[in-house]
Structures are given as C-alpha cells and as structure tokens.
C-alpha cells in the first residue's frame, strides 16, 4: 500500500513510518502541517493516509479539517485519523458523508501493532475503524442507550465490535466464538433494531453507525 503519514511530532512520525514499513507497506510522503497534508492528499492520492488531528499552524484541528476537505474533493479517499482524545462530534463529522474508508483511533492504538495495521488495511479497502472508546460513547450516551436495552449482553458486544468496523470473522476470533454463532447474533440484533442486513460487511457497518449516530 502507498501510505501518507501526517504528524507534526518528529518522534511519533518517525515511529509510525518505521512501524508501517516493518509491515511491508510503503510510506510515500510525510507531512507536518495542515496545508501540507491537504496538498499531499490531493496530489498523491495515497491508498490510505494516517493523519494527526492537531497540527501547525494553529495547533487546533488542522489535520481533521484537511482530511474532511480532501474527502469533499475526492469522495471516499481513505483516511485514518489519530488523536490523543476521541470525540463523538468528530466521529460524526467523519462518517457524515456515508462513503466509508474512514478510521478514527486513539494514538495508543499503535501499541498493538497487528491490530493497528489491520485497521489501516481495512480503511484502505473502504471499511471503517472506529476506536472502542468512540463506540463505547456512542452506545452509552443519550437516547441510544434506551433503544439498545432490548439487546442481550452478547448481542451488545457483537454490535460494539461491528461498529468498530470488524468483519464477522474478526469478531468471532475476538470473542472466541464460531463465525456461525456471530452471524446468528447479528441476524438477531439486526431484527431487534429494525435494520436490514447487508451482505457486504462495509455497508453493514455504515448502517450500524448511521443507526447509532441518529
């Protein structure tokens, strides 16, 4: 994969580049500011870009804004946003266009390199990778909580992992269950929430996220 790394702190940028290259992917460019990131996104059109939210010149949400702007130009351009904190507000903005190819993870998710690179590949393929912390907030705040009361505990777990962007197979291995057990749970919870199950897992995840966002 051709990957862009946008991060202003040298140590982190260097670490990310090394980690990505260790998994056999190619870092085509690095960027350290918001404008640089936007420029690289539009000209290089990488397979996926890893972008820090807070970057110069304003040290506010430069990275996030660059990612959103680039995706308005090129819909579905895969971006994986990294941040020291996760906000539902930002997750909603990233998911709003409904095209997928979006990731939003806490910086410490790189501690588990396998899972991180897995998430990167999933986003590059048009899937989603949402941090468990964002999903936990989505599932536990506001009116959604009451609507999810009808789910069993196991269905709740499956829903959370699905919302993170995992496939049935990945959910099965995380929960130590068989894939057929997972698909039974998904059918049940889709029925309870009144959603139509979709064959492609990406579209299914987007449907779940749209439901939670509503």
């Amino acid at each position: 994969m051709r990957i862009l790394v946008a991060e202003d702190l040298y140590l982190l940028r260097d670490g990310l580049v090394r980690l990505i290259e260790a998994y056999g992917h190619q870092v085509v460019a690095t960027a350290g500011t918001g404008p640089e990131t936007l420029d690289a996104l539009l000209t290089l059109q990488p397979d996926v870009a890893v972008i820090d939210v807070r970057m110069p010149p304003t040290q506010s949400d430069e990275g996030l804004r660059a990612a959103l702007a680039a995706r308005r130009e090129i819909p579905g351009l895969p971006v994986l946003i990294l941040s020291q904190h996760v906000e539902q507000l930002y997750a909603r903005e990233l998911l709003a266009d409904g095209t997928g190819g979006v990731g939003y993870l806490l910086k410490e998710s790189v501690f588990d390199a396998d899972q991180f690179v897995d998430a990167l590949e999933r986003v590059a393929a048009g899937g989603t990778a949402m941090d468990p912390a964002v999903i936990a907030k989505l599932l536990s705040s506001g009116p959604t909580t009451r609507r999810l009361d009808r789910l069993t505990e196991r269905e709740h777990d499956v829903l959370a992992l699905m919302a993170e962007g995992l496939s049935n197979q990945a959910i099965a291995s995380r929960l130590f269950l068989s894939e057929s057990a997972i698909s039974k749970h998904t059918t049940a919870l889709f029925g309870k929430l009144g959603l139509t199950d979709n064959d492609t897992s990406n579209r299914r995840v987007l449907a779940v996220l749209a439901y939670l966002n509503n």
Binding site: S60, Q84, E87, Q88, G142, T145
Partner: peptide, 30 residues
C-alpha cells in the same frame, strides 16, 4: 486529567463545538 484542566475540543473548536461534543457524550438528551 487534561480534560479536567482544559478539554482539547475547547482548544480545537471553541466553546460552541466543545459544548456540542459534551452534549453528545452526556447521558441526557441535550
């Protein structure tokens, strides 16, 4: 700890979006 000193969203987006972000996380319907 950082959130208690100065929530990052406040720094990144200002008061209105920080309040929106807080409202989204709240158990109340805000």
């Amino acid at each position: 700890l950082v959130k208690g000193i100065n929530p990052p969203v406040l720094n990144e987006r200002g008061l209105v979006d920080a309040v929106r972000a807080f409202a989204l996380d709240s158990p109340l319907e805000i």
